[in-house]
Design a protein around this nucleic acid. Structure first.
Lengths: 346, 346
DNA sequence: TTGCCTATAGCAAACGTTTCCAGTTAAGAG
DNA sequence: CTCTTAACTGGAAACGTTTGCTATAGGCAA
């Protein structure tokens, strides 16, 4: 009968360890470790012998034990503000790709837009002893922030967030430039009643976009209407209800800017309700090139930024940090891309 | 001057360990461990004392050490075939949510549709000693498959894949039913030249959809045209080139089915090239309710399955497996949802 | 020949937990 | 009053690696 072959005296269920490799190769544990990890103090003969035995036994090093001993987990934590936003999928993907290329794995945790969850996520990553954390924070003024950004003894990269006084790298998009370009375009086309729906200004993108927005008006020496701004929520519900209100205003807005995925959803629903078509009765610009737009709505004007580049850059910054370099801020450019939806309305 | 306070005699850079908690509370290491892990053999007084000291010192257990000792990592590996498919984002998200709710973290690795990458990914997860693996395989006949599915000493859940003779759970969608419904609908509307573009049949969804497709013709006692099927690639390029060919056939197809994200992309581009509008000159059905369709293309008829439910179910199956239950297969229903795009063409 | 250096190998102590086992105390039973 | 038992507590050995230190051997210069 084909017995549960346990040649080496151990149960077949046990995974093979460095100890068994050492025994079979008749060398010391330390030699196996060195031979396999590429340590210089190993003779060619020893290395070959150990590698052969390791292959033969199908030895796969225990990363948990390696981590405990060496203090390095080769794992990066990615805290994402709200994974509902499809941009994050793209970003996380390119980031993971770059990290894996460098021998790191990524643990992705989602805060669902909630500060308490975010705090728990940071704690989890600290307990897991990740080598670095990439974070898209829910807000820049959470009470846990100091602890979470200063506490961990690992490099941190913030995505599109500005937190003063912490020693973290950051990837910031230059939203202001793109928005400035977009709004200037609208003003030149004769628009005056330009509405703007976006999330609250406790995060950098909102503030930065606002800067570009107001500066465009200033540069054109045109007075803007503060009551056309709905600054307060990134979710579709907020955008929907505020878009409804804005559309009932008189004079009605002739153009409308959507800050992010939720705003895009909400506004497009509100427009449909009132039977308004983007690019005809009203000009529309999305302040983010959301990935799904490429597919079916290739007529939507956007302020574009290269999301995959942001992910890659975040990965590079965290790797730099791990190698001991000083934190730094990396600026990503944005650009207004004119398509059909920003026509009309005038 | 505010010196680098090192009250406990250790460098401030060192993380606090169970040892320091034990010292400060003047109890044994083992008592601290038991008190914090909820072990029953601990007096109330001891538990309080330990917890107070732990809080005071800001002790955060080292999950790496816990894992090494206990053999449990509370980590699930998620091998995804190709994260380009936006459905996976949704699926992974709901899965991660369910896992985190149960105290598990998820490591997501992407195979980019490549068998070698997939093999490396499995190896990585084994070395990380994950407690379970959820996998969407590149193909069902990769040479590494036996090793990767039988090798790891942990439960496995396959997503929409059938691999005979391995002891794994699976979440399978009942594509056949939805496709049967969709094709029957088209046949009743008078369509005869129904084209079908999808990935190769070395994965279950293709084979299963094909079953539903042919059975619908059989049940209607109508002969189908095999030359209207393009079975071979999930990527947009494949779909584009084959859709072009199909559209030049004579008689031209009056309806076209897209199997998955890539097919949808490719076909819609081909239609645009020929200036054909879905629901007018040609009927169109997407064999997957892709998340972005809800947003702008709410007129696309689809065969729907609840992607988030699939993610949740995968999480539950893996947790079951960890608790020692036998692997099992869970079937998810699909359903034809008629919208405007499946009109016309006749 | 002697001494020193280099290259390599082995031993054993970590890393931070959990858990088995044995010991202590106090309470309850006889 | 003694014995048994229950309820805890402490000590120490794991878990599977890496790594500092020591030992050995051979080569080479003096």
């Amino acid at each position: 009968m084909p017995s549960e072959k346990s040649e080496n005296g151990r149960s077949v269920n046990q995974r093979v360890t460095i100890r068994e490799v050492a025994a079979k190769a008749e060398v010391a544990l330390s030699s196996v470790s060195r031979a396999l990890s590429g340590h210089p103090d190993v003779s060619d003969e020893m290395r070959k012998r150990v590698k052969d035995v390791a292959d033969e036994l199908g030895y796969e090093p225990n990363l948990v034990a390696q981590s405990l001993r060496s203090g390095v987990t080769r794992t990066i934590g990615f805290v994402v503000r709200d994974i509902n936003n499809p941009m994050f999928a793209l970003l996380a993907r390119s980031c993971e790709h770059e990290l894996r290329r460098n021998g790191y794995s990524m643990i992705l945790v989602n805060s669902d837009g909630n500060i308490e969850n975010e705090n728990r996520n940071f704690s989890l990553l600290r307990r897991r002893r990740v080598d670095g954390i990439i974070a898209s924070l829910v807000s820049e003024d959470s009470p846990y922030l100091r602890k979470n950004l200063a506490g961990p003894r690992c490099p941190i990269v913030l995505l599109d967030r500005e937190v003063k006084g912490v020693n973290a790298s950051a990837v910031l998009a230059d939203h202001a430039a793109g928005v400035h370009e977009a709004v200037t375009h609208l003003l030149k086309a004769g628009h005056r009643e330009i509405a703007f729906v976006t999330g609250s200004n406790n995060v950098y993108p909102t503030r930065n976009r606002l800067q570009g927005f107001t500066k465009a008006f200033e540069d054109a020496k045109i007075k803007m209407h503060p009551d056309l701004m709905a600054i307060g929520g990134f979710d579709a519900e907020y955008a929907l209800s505020h878009a409804r209100i804005l559309l009932h205003r008189s004079p009605a807005p002739t153009a409308i800017l959507a800050g992010g995925h939720g705003a895009l959803m909400g506004i497009s629903r509100a427009l449909k309700e009132k039977n308004l078509t983007m690019g005809k009765e009203i000009a529309f610009i999305a302040l983010d090139q959301l990935p799904y737009l490429e597919v079916f709505s290739d007529n939507i004007s956007t302020v574009y930024r290269d999301t995959e580049a942001i992910g890659r850059e975040a990965a590079r910054l965290i790797l730099e940090g791990i190698e001991g370099e000083k934190p730094r801020v990396s600026l990503i450019e944005t650009q207004f891309i004119e398509r059909a939806s920003s026509q009309g309305g005038i």
